[in-house]
Design a protein around this nucleic acid. Structure first.
Length: 587
RNA sequence: GCCCCUGUAGCUCAACUGGAUAGAGCAACGGACUUCUAAUCCGUAGGUUGGGGGUUCGAGUCCUCCCGGGGGCGCCA
């Protein structure tokens, strides 16, 4: 139970007393801290619904609240706001309860959902590039938050290894190196080493894709190669496995550098065996129909403002495209994984695609009503010119290069600040990496998921302002106090009722953690945690400035303050953890 | 052409889904260190939320019309 929830229940009961819905009792942190600590706006909404005057309702609710223990203030303001504050004793009580709770006041979900988070979306033949960055960072943070929230989370990068792109690559390689054993009839033994490197693939793929646009004969060959691969040609499969491996190797390295992990590493190809039976079912059920030689599913619905192109289930040449794979993947996730909620953390340009897939999945009965599918889209990461982030030559930037850039920047910042100067080289390097990743992730996650934002290396890596490094630094300073206290054998004790404004504000802030986590899950919006972490650091720094813990002479107060510092650190570290950011022990 | 997203301080971004006086960071200016890591903290200045109209006790948020920016539209992912 959190303080806000407790207050909401008190207010809700007061509304219920008046014959009104208890949900009007929702209590929020005050927007006018000079007036009160909390507020409830429900009286005005209740007035609209019931036809009774808002101030009368508010007055009666406030009166009831005033009679409850721990409530220091409950009064009506303006058109019907109810301003509420609690006593310092009650605050200390809540603080002690929350600070000693490993979950910091957040209650794990009573009915845990199985949540599949589909993010990152690496592809064969492509090293990950900046375009994958947001999906990876946001998806990872959402997965961490839902897991903390008590849900069963399954993280799956959904490796793109099966569509027409594979046919394009095979057709192009067959043309370039026709003597390779993979293309010879009757050969069944193939080399262990890949005939192509990732760089080869990165060169071949864009050229082949561009050529297929103009060269219909080549495109046809690629389509045939796709079908032949999907039907299991041993040579094609062997070559395909090599291409997968070299791609995956590089991608796993990038994920490791980012500190991002997955529970599954499934690709589109892994659902291939589910496709044919599924397609058959859809055909038999009359959900799929034939059109221009292909099998399609119409996804128009009543009330549409536009025409929707149908989903292509099976192409004219008998190949399966990514929509089909996505449908089979839903089938798998629902039936085998027991998914209740599937979050697709994929950029906004694919929103039409997901609308089609979700509609088709419902229509075809693959996803029953109880399963929610959601395209958790996000905006573009732009360069300083406000256009999508590119190299100076206009090419895409590899994710690995971005990581190197930001870690270099972090190293430079540490030098400038003379931080971590005399540490062992290995530790110093680890700190630089942690700081760089924090800069990168926080710079992204602090923005609203749906807005575009400008990637600014200098700004993100600064120790000043709203940045990841600033938060790490703030946390490290707290760790330093705790270490010093231990050296001097000063023990933390129970939190005492606050007497200093900065202390009270810090406690009030820390008590809001549970609601921030819930809101972040509801809105799928890690920026709420990011913002909260920044405010936590600010609230602590103000307290730190005003209240000198270790030199405090009143022993009970000193022990309480030390416990407050420890609680602040726990809140900050957990918030950062939800963002995928690590805090060094020192720097 | 049709549909979706978007426009907030000089710059980069928030705003808990309709609540009070729209908030941060950076940049600018002014203050605070014999003190637990000052890369910190406090203060000042900065706004017709692209524009018009509407809905209501109350609009950055909802509806509508303009203007600007981005994206997507049948066998790529």
């Amino acid at each position: 139970m959190s303080l806000l929830r407790h207050l909401s229940e008190l207010a809700g009961a007061a509304f219920a007393d008046l014959g009104l819905d208890a949900s009007y009792g929702q209590v929020l942190p005050s927007q006018r801290p000079e007036l009160s600590q909390f507020q409830c706006n429900g009286a005005m909404a209740a007035a609209k619904k019931s036809g009774r005057p808002p101030q009368e309702i508010a007055g009666q609710v406030a009166e009831r609240l005033r009679s409850r223990p721990g409530v220091a203030l409950a009064e009506v303001a303006g058109p019907g706001f109810i301003n509420i504050s609690v006593t310092d004793d009650a605050l200390a009580e809540w603080a002690n309860r929350t600070a000693s709770d490993p979950r910091l006041g957040h209650e794990a979900a009573a009915d845990p959902l199985t949540v599949v988070v589909d993010y990152a979306g690496p592809n064969v033949a492509k090293a990950m590039h900046v375009g994958h960055l947001r999906a990876t960072i946001i998806g990872d943070s959402l997965a961490r938050t839902f897991a903390f929230g008590g849900h069963k989370v399954i993280r799956d990068p959904h490796f793109g290894d099966w569509g027409f792109q594979m046919g394009l690559l095979i057709a192009a390689i067959a043309e370039e190196q026709p003597d390779l054993p993979y293309f010879q009839e009757g050969v069944t033994e193939f080399p262990d080493t890949s005939p192509v490197t990732l760089d080869d693939l990165q060169r071949i793929y864009p050229a082949a894709a561009a050529r297929a646009q103009e060269d219909e004969e080549f495109a046809e060959r690629a389509r045939m190669a796709t079908v032949r691969l999907q039907q299991g040609d041993p040579g094609y499969r062997a070559l395909w496995r090599h291409m997968k491996n070299v791609s995956e190797q590089s991608q796993r390295a990038d994920f490791a550098a980012l500190g991002v992990e997955f529970d599954l590493w499934y690709g589109e190809s892994d659902v291939h065996d589910l496709i044919e039976p599924m397609v058959e079912r859809l055909k038999e059920a009359g959900v799929a129909e034939e059109s221009e030689g292909a099998w399609i599913i119409r996804v128009d619905e009543e009330g549409d403002k536009r025409e929707w192109p149908p989903l292509i289930l099976e192409s004219r040449t008998g190949g399966f495209l990514y929509s089909t794979t996505d449908l089979a993947t839903i089938d798998f996730r629902v039936r085998d994984l027991g998914a209740d909620l599937i979050l697709y953390v994929v950029d906004r340009r694919q929103s039409d695609h997901f609308t089609q897939v979700f509609r088709a999945a419902r229509k075809g009965g693959l996803a029953p009503e109880g399963v929610a599918m959601e395209h958790t889209w996000f905006g573009t990461m732009n360069g300083p010119d406000g256009k999508p982030f590119k190299t100076r030559e206009g090419g895409v930037i590899r994710l690995g290069d971005v990581i190197n850039m930001i870690v270099d920047a972090a190293r430079k910042r540490l030098d400038e600040a003379h931080l971590a100067e005399d540490y062992p080289e290995e530790e110093r390097e680890r700190i630089a990496h942690q700081v760089g990743i924090a800069a990168l992730k926080f710079g992204d996650l602090v923005n609203n998921r749906t807005s575009d934002y400008v990637f600014d290396l200098d700004r993100f890596s600064s120790f000043e302002g709203k940045t990841g490094p600033y938060l790490q630094y703030a946390a490290v300073r707290v760790k330093s106090i705790l270490r010093k206290a231990e050296e001097r054998a000063i023990e933390p004790g129970p939190l005492v009722p606050p007497t200093v404004p900065e202390e009270r504000q810090l406690i009030l802030h820390l008590l809001q953690f549970p609601e921030v986590v819930d809101r972040t899950m509801e809105l799928r919006a890690p920026n709420h945690v990011a913002e909260y972490a920044f405010e936590t650091a600010g609230a602590f720094n103000r307290f730190y400035d005003t209240c000198h813990i270790l030199s405090e002479e009143d022993a009970a107060r000193r022990a309480g303050w030390l416990a407050l510092a420890r609680w602040s650190l726990a809140t900050l570290e957990l918030s950062l953890h939800l963002l995928g950011i690590e805090v060094p022990d020192r720097m």
